[in-house]
């Protein structure tokens, strides 16, 4: 084979035509493929947008500040992931463990936010005062306006009206899209924790850093997908007329 096929990470015993590691190449091919996977899910979400026949809609359930926080957490987990890898390549196993643990913790935080969010949506309450001008109500809330009939202005309408995948097209496409992202994150967390435990068994070393490199690529990918989802689903989602 190629003489002295240089291995960028110095751990690989195989020599390859391009000098690139097999597994890393596979990972990138997989990520390219996964772009199509999430592209299809996001495409489905956008095609179905505005087609739901009954509420609640995005504007009723989304809580942008809360999701902004979880988005921020996931972004920062990417940073700590890259630092974990950097620490490992520098030979600092301790640094690696600290950073990878914090990455996993931030991943779990993100997941908790998602679980919380799903729970909130599923138990969404319509809540408004009859004194609220109709123009301030969302389309979905207006369908409850007859509850104000015969009531005084201070009357409050409260109605449990949750969003599930079965409720409407928005629910279906939203939960499946974000759910599959959540599944990717979950898999990532399991992977990171496996690496963390493995490092205590001596399986992760500065020389054998490819396992961490691959996990990091995967983790960053999950992060960039969320960047798109946050913009396209959340921010555009509550933007009227889009």
């Amino acid at each position: 084979m190629l003489e002295a096929g240089a291995d960028p990470h110095g751990e690989n015993s195989e020599h390859t035509t391009t000098g690139l590691n097999h597994r890393k190449l596979l990972m990138w091919a997989f990520l390219g493929s996964d772009c199509m996977f999430f592209g299809t899910l996001i495409g489905t979400y956008l095609v179905s947008k505005g087609r739901s026949l009954v509420g609640p809609y995005a504007v009723d359930v989304f809580d942008i500040p809360v999701t902004s926080v979880s988005t921020f957490v996931l972004l920062m987990s990417s940073m700590s992931m890259v630092l974990a890898y950097a620490a490992l390549t520098r030979g600092s196993l301790k640094g690696f463990r600290i950073w990878i643990a914090s990455t996993a913790i931030m991943g779990m935080t993100f997941l908790s936010f998602q679980v919380f969010e799903f729970y909130e949506f599923a138990n969404h309450e319509v809540h408004f005062k009859c004194s609220t001008p109709i123009s301030d109500l969302t389309e979905h809330e207006r369908t409850f306006i007859d509850k104000c009939a015969g009531q005084d202005a201070s009357h409050e309408v409260e109605e449990q009206h949750g969003l599930t995948p079965r409720t409407n097209l928005f629910g279906t496409t939203f939960f499946v899209l974000t759910g599959f992202h959540g599944a990717h994150v979950t898999l990532g967390v399991v992977w990171l924790l496996s690496l963390l435990f493995y490092s205590f068994r001596g399986g992760v070393t500065a020389k054998r850093n490819l396992d961490v490199d691959l996990a990091a690529l995967y983790w960053h990918f999950v992060d960039v997908v969320w960047i798109v989802i946050f913009t396209v689903v959340y921010l555009f989602g509550v933007f009227p007329g889009f």
């Binding site: 391009t18 690139l20 190449l25 990138w28 390219g32 772009c35 990417s78 890259v82 960053h220």
Partner: peptide, 25 residues
């Protein structure tokens, strides 16, 4: 994130082809 955290800026352009190819498609 792609260029720095995923090292695409520093790595083989082949990786960028795979990733941005899939993304563009």
């Amino acid at each position: 994130v792609a260029l720095f955290y995923m090292h695409l800026k520093y790595d083989s352009p082949l990786f960028s082809w795979f990733f941005f190819g899939g993304l563009a498609l």
